[in-house]
Design a protein around this nucleic acid. Structure first.
Lengths: 235, 235
DNA sequence: TATATTAATTGTCAAATAAACACTAAAAAA
DNA sequence: TTTTTTAGTGTTTATTTGACAATTAATATA
């Protein structure tokens, strides 16, 4: 059968907003762009979509290139299609955001791409419309995390409740009463208490927990509401 | 400066899921495709993205072509990028969903495109991956409407509370206690009661309301929660 | 060894919210 | 005048949320 021969073809890219949590702050991984235009300036990790590659494949490829990681949380965010967003040539870019365990990230790859983690509050000036993409990703991660347990994807397999609370407080830039927080979190049935304690964070040590994966998948879509008064979240 | 001359170019399309409410059922507008492949089969309204046209412009153009409407609620849903989704040639498509007042829709345009409204429960077999797009749009409209007052976009300027309730019940396929419903809806401060009544729907007649646009924009992002126990909504 | 320090862990009560529930009112039709 | 139909409204109970502080475990220090 005929091809759509009369139609215009476009450049298609994917860009990844990669989130990580270092125990204190929510951060994103940025690279220094290695080619013109804007060579040397801070940028999201991205790349062009190839001919026989789906968007999901492309985003996973880009993510692996920079982090060495596969099979992590990666979700399509939005497609940015303004005609002038890339000054060289019209390029449509689909942004994805990834949530990774920052400790699994392979540090040596940073060097290849001159990559660096930046706290969300200290993101440098970015190329093109990447600033806008980051803003959209921030809104989305907050929106989604207010309702669904995605933030666990940022933690290692075993984590403590104080760690989890610090994560929520960092993402929502708020403080939460620890009695109410642990009550809510434990009431979800998402956590399994382990026998061992984490001794690094305090003298007393805090018990490790891990996700009950069964319940996690079952309840992922339920509205969980860990955040007090989540009334004015922006989508 | 140089172009990205070594990169592959792709076909880019937009497809629109157009929702309307006839007072009883939530429906979508489908067309019979006018060209090969799949000529004559049911399809979403769509089209290729042109060279100097943003995605938003393209989706607005497509929407206007079929409905005659401009300035209506139109939101990017998701970009579908599997390599084999169009059997003729690899095409990436960004799906948008629109919420329109079904009465403002210009009926004569139906004829040009052999368009027809289908209740969501009776959507015919669709071409390509349009079925998947419709499913995603259904999930999204429910998810968003459970938290934000988007469903007003489906109603005329003036509407009654029973009409509004029917709409919610139709979208969520549930029944809601009318005392609780009207209490909640009125408590938002989103509605202005008018002096006139709608006499079409009942003997007694129901008062018309219209949106308080000030409050509507101000509270759009707040979680409103008209739906009892919205616990298992799927994103 | 005793004491001090630090962070983890846990429960109650009050307030706000949500859910269940049924009668009266208005208007047209019979 | 009566019947029919749908609109409109208030109270009570149950559930959920939010505010609040003392105790415990372990290490560090005196």
């Amino acid at each position: 059968m005929h091809k759509y021969s009369k139609q215009v073809r476009h450049l298609l890219a994917v860009d990844c907003i990669i989130f990580g949590f270092d125990g204190e702050l929510l951060k994103i991984l940025l690279i220094q762009r290695g080619f013109q235009p804007e060579k040397g300036n801070w940028s999201l990790m991205g790349g062009f979509v190839e001919l026989n590659e789906s968007l999901n494949q492309a985003s996973n490829r880009i993510l692996k290139q920079l982090t060495g990681l596969e099979g992590v949380y990666l979700e399509q965010l939005h497609t940015f299609g303004d005609t002038d967003r890339d000054p060289i040539e019209r390029t449509v870019s689909t942004a994805y955001f990834a949530l990774i365990d920052i400790h699994k990230y392979e540090t040596q790859l940073s060097n290849d791409y001159h990559a660096e983690w930046f706290p969300l509050k200290r993101v440098p000036k970015l190329i093109f419309d990447h600033q806008e993409m980051v803003e959209a990703a921030k809104r989305r991660i907050r929106y989604k995390a207010a309702l669904h347990p995605i933030l666990f994807e940022l933690l290692p397999n075993r984590f403590t409740i104080p760690q989890l609370q610090t994560l929520y407080e960092s993402v929502f830039n708020t403080t939460i009463d620890k009695r109410n927080f642990s009550k809510r979190v434990l009431a979800t049935g998402l956590l399994i208490k382990l026998a061992e304690k984490d001794k690094a964070g305090s003298k007393r040590g805090a018990y490790y927990y891990q996700l009950n994966m069964q319940n996690y998948y079952a309840k992922f879509q339920a509205f969980l509401n860990f955040i007090p008064n989540p009334d004015t979240l922006l989508l």
